[in-house]
Write a protein that binds this DNA or RNA. Structure first.
Length: 932
DNA sequence: ACGCTCACG
DNA sequence: GACGTACGTGAGCGTA
């Protein structure tokens, strides 16, 4: 049968995606024993493929066959209509990793596997079926999808493999009331809620077929719509003509798409037993491997031993032994390790440096681990630590030259086929980036732990090692000492460094083996893979870019603050009648409540008076000058010490910029935290403080852009709690706090006062925080009973909010965690506690899904940003929870705003379609003060 | 090392 | 009926 496809040939086209979904939904979840990878759909898919091959033997056997898949989610139909298939659910967590495996399975069966970016499987099927029919051959499409029925006829028929039912002209006519050539016309009119095809309102398949049969085809029908007697139908066709025509273009399959394969490439071939059985045994499908081996008359390969001891490595079985690690001192030894890593396809990596500031620390050595207990350390810049004048600071013998070692390591660390595993990889990625190495791809045990166990415990290596391996790593303090006498890692003797550093890589590898399979088991693999891991290179880049801070501006402000503080201090001492440390809450409390005898002194746990801003404000409001002056002094003191002074120390002398570091796995909710320095709490609320932002500037010829989500948490609340009134207000672009006030206090919007609006705003925020009468009362400074009255009225007016809160707490109690719309889990171990702790836990549980969903959304935007702005002269610099800061050449500012806004506003899609729009406000200027 | 205070979203 | 609370962070300072 070899040669050209033509008469006598019979092509089978299998709708692979339908196979997968059917297999997935029909079968109980099944995971690969050795590592927990979900493989249920792959198993079902292989079984179906095997059954298909067996069933189609004989005289009716196909001569040519292909399995056709969808690829990606964006096709030309999305360009025609952005709502196309928009109400589809996201792919289930368990199914996602199985998709590439089904392609592999198809190839293992030696069946052609077709997919093409930008087109649906249906288009590929349509194009091939048309070509085969035109060549005089027969075609069977193995699918029951009604969208393919337009292809039936002229030697093309369909086969519903499940029901073993043939679908020919008659069956199509029974379903659509017209022949295959008019199916698209009927579909265009009737629409389709599954694919979100609009169609004509009020017209279903029955009516559509009636109309098409009467007028011949869709175009004639639309042209002559005025003749239709029924007013409703006439109106529907006339008013929605464009929508109907669009629908037709959406359902019409492309029979002429460009394809890399020819029909002759699809000829049926016998599978290669070794390849097929190899794949099946790799998947650990025992029964199927055996069955197919028998059929092929081959020996079934040995399956890996998946006895519990192997599958769940016992940490005691192979104890961590620091004396067993190797010190790599020359190229020959290093090459052995590199080859080992290459062969295994993965390696744990850890860098040792002279400090914790990745922008300044020097690289001292690198450790690698390729298997539990199999690890090495490559010393590169160790120096003699003795106080002998001649030997101190001299390089130690027996180390590879840094550049030579990095030249050997670079291809491995950048090899796309070798997974590099680390603990807090952002750190190592930045160190290596400064040596020209772009480490990828990466896995990060800290982020695995965060995706799995946020809210349960910390994610540092020592904590993870204790918890999962019952092993205490060598504390770094034993090498470096602490306090003033601490040394840097380059001064640590090499044999000690080997034990410590190689142990870190060893532990990291063991942790990865333990944690990675759990990501699938616990359904957070997508969280890890889409919102944790890809953030690492994005943040590394932002941190290395840094933001320009003008030292002179800060210095001038510092001096001004110092002068004002000195004046205030003198005044305060005067009022007190004695000199004391204004910065000491203890001394201040004694002055206020003991010496001056003011009322309202509350002693805290430690016995000291509380002197927080709220207390001082109350006293000031009673007319006392001293607390009022102290408040002023404190504000200036804060601005000076934390900002104008400390920030100057953070300006990197080489770059002239400030390089913060973001903690990815710090905040339980998924938020980032910024440290060294914290650039997420630069003042903005007070006029005086806001001026500090004048020191954050753009380079010459550039501007800073600030884009922030407007009310993102309230919008998420409206969505998750399903509050119709709130959703509607956001859709209409109304003032949300005024709307709330109007609803609650029955005041028309036109008569709204700032005071009523302010109270409603406090309630709106209170809801996000897990409102309590006490908290609201304190915030609004009103009697507790009044606050409780507000809350009661709020719940009465928006009953969905109360339902949401109750449902969230019930969920937390049942599962021990809450989750965001994107599947991030935040554990709530204290939710069952008694006493005041229960209150904290409940409020945290209510807040976490909202704050966490907002955090997920901006993470998604950030991850997409580098590609989106790649062609623009723009750099992403900072993130402040709901705000992103960019630096861009002035001429491209407008374009950048448009691109960034589009990415931010669409960041939830396509996984989550919020019921409210996300809106982004933008500003620009020479400084952050102007841009915000 | 820890608690207080205060800066941000 | 009392408990004692708004959610999430980090930094600097004083006090132990």
């Amino acid at each position: 049968m070899s040669g050209t496809f033509g008469k006598g040939c019979h092509l089978h086209l299998i709708d692979g995606s339908a196979f997968i979904f059917r297999a997935f939904h029909a079968l109980p979840p099944l995971t690969r024993k050795s590592d927990g990878l979900p493989v249920g759909a792959v198993s079902g898919f292989c079984n179906m493929l095997h059954k298909y091959v067996e069933d189609t033997r004989g005289p009716e056997a196909p001569t040519h066959v292909a399995v056709v898949f969808d690829k990606g989610s964006h096709t030309f139909r999305n360009d025609l209509y952005d709502q196309y298939k928009a109400n589809r659910d996201a792919m289930p967590e368990d199914l996602r990793p199985q998709i590439p495996l089904t392609r592999e399975a198809t190839r293992a069966f030696n069946i052609a596997c077709l997919e093409q970016e930008g087109f649906e499987a249906d288009d590929i099927i349509a194009t091939l079926a048309t070509r085969a029919r035109d060549a005089g051959g027969r075609v069977t499409i193995i699918s029951s999808d009604k969208d393919l029925m337009q292809l039936v006829g002229g030697g093309v028929e369909m086969l519903d493999a499940m029901k073993n039912r043939r679908i020919g002209l008659e069956e199509v006519h029974a379903k659509f009331g017209v022949g295959p050539d008019r199916v698209v016309d009927v579909q265009a009119l009737a629409g389709d809620s599954v694919d979100n095809i609009p169609g004509a309102p009020g017209i279903g398949v029955k009516t559509a077929a009636l109309l098409i049969n009467e007028y011949g085809d869709l175009e004639s029908l639309l042209d002559r719509a005025a003749e239709i007697r029924q007013p409703k139908r006439r109106q529907a066709l006339q008013e929605h003509r464009a929508q109907i025509e669009l629908s037709k273009r959406l359902v019409l399959l492309d029979v002429n798409m460009p394809l890399d394969v020819a029909l002759d490439d699809l000829e049926v071939c016998e599978p290669d037993p070794e390849t097929l059985l190899g794949f099946l045994s790799q998947m650990e499908f025992r029964t199927l491997t055996k069955r197919i081996a028998e059929k092929l008359g081959a020996e079934p390969p040995a399956l890996p031993d998946t006895s519990p001891a192997e599958a769940d490595p016992d940490p005691e079985a192979r104890p961590v032994d620091p004396s067993a690690y190797e010190c790599v001192r020359d190229a020959g030894a290093l090459k052995v390790w590199i080859a080992r890593a290459r062969a295994l396809g993965r390696v744990a990596v850890d860098t040792e440096t002279t400090g914790l500031d990745e922008m300044r620390a020097g690289l001292v050595g690198i450790s690698l681990a390729t298997a539990p207990g199999q690890a090495c350390y490559i010393p590169l810049a160790h120096k003699a630590g003795g106080d002998d004048l001649f030997s101190a600071e001299a390089p130690v013998e027996g180390q590879m030259e840094m550049e030579a070692a990095l030249t050997l390591l670079r291809p491995l660390l950048e090899d796309p086929a070798v997974m590099k595993i680390g603990q807090n990889m952002k750190y190592d990625a930045k160190i290596l980036a400064r040596h020209g190495i772009d480490i990828a791809p990466i896995d990060d045990t800290m982020l695995m732990s965060y995706a799995l166990d946020a809210g349960l415990h910390g994610h540092g290596m020592d904590a993870l090692s204790e918890r999962h391996l019952s092993h205490t790593p060598i504390p770094i303090k034993t090498l470096l000492g602490s306090g003033k006498s601490a040394i840097t890692f380059d001064l640590v003797p090499i044999d000690e460094a080997v034990k410590y550093a190689a142990e870190d890589a060893d532990i990291t590898l063991r942790l990865a083996d333990l944690l990675k399979p759990r990501l699938h088991h616990r359904k957070v693999a997508t969280v890890y893979e889409t919102m944790e891991r890809p953030l690492v290179p994005v943040l590394a880049k932002m941190e290395m870019t840094g933001v320009k801070v003008d030292r002179d501006t800060l210095s001038r402000m510092s001096n001004a603050f110092a002068r004002k503080m000195a004046a205030l201090e003198a005044e305060i001492h005067d009022l007190a009648g004695e000199r004391f440390n204004v910065g000491s809450p203890k001394q201040l409390g004694e002055i206020l409540f003991d010496k001056m005898g003011l009322q309202g002194g509350q002693r805290g746990k430690a016995g000291a008076y509380a002197t927080g801003a709220d207390i001082l404000e109350d006293l000031a409001a009673e007319g006392h000058d001293l607390p009022a002056r102290v408040l002023d002094w404190r504000q200036l003191s804060k601005l000076k010490s934390t900002y104008t002074d400390a920030l100057q120390d953070h300006i990197n002398p080489e770059t002239g910029r400030v390089h913060t570091s973001y903690v990815i796995a710090g905040a339980n909710t998924g938020r980032l935290a910024s440290t060294d320095p914290n650039l997420q709490n630069i003042p903005v609320r007070s006029e005086e403080g806001r001026r500090i932002r004048e020191a954050f500037v753009a380079e010459e010829g550039k501007v800073l852009l600030s884009l922030d989500y407007s009310q993102i948490e309230l919008r998420i609340l409206a969505h998750v709690a399903g509050i119709g009134a709130l959703k509607e207000a956001f859709r209409q672009g109304q003032d949300i706090h005024a709307m709330t006030a109007s609803e609650m206090f029955s005041v028309p919007l036109a008569e709204m006062t700032p005071e009523i609006r302010r109270q409603a705003k406090a309630i709106n925020f209170g809801v996000i925080y897990g409102i309590s009468g006490f908290g609201l009362a304190r915030n609004l400074r009103i009697p507790r009973a009044d606050a409780q009255g507000f809350i009661d009225r709020y719940f009465e007016r928006f009953p969905g909010i109360k339902d949401y809160m109750d449902a969230t707490i019930a969920f937390a109690k049942e599962h021990g965690h809450v989750q965001t719309l994107f599947g991030r889990r935040i554990h709530t171990p204290e939710i069952a506690a008694k006493g005041p702790r229960a209150g904290f836990a409940r409020r945290a549980a209510i807040n976490a899904p909202i704050q966490g969903t907002a955090a997920d959304i901006i993470r998604r935007a950030m991850i997409r940003m580098p590609e989106a702005i790649a062609t623009l002269p723009a750099k992403m610099l900072l993130q402040v929870h709901d705000e992103l800061i960019f630096e861009v050449e002035e001429h491209a500012a407008e374009d950048t705003v448009a691109v960034v806004r589009r990415v931010m506003e669409g960041a939830a899609l396509p996984v989550v379609r919020l019921d409210v729009p996300l809106e982004v406000d933008a500003g620009q200027g020479a400084s952050w003060a102007e841009a915000h």
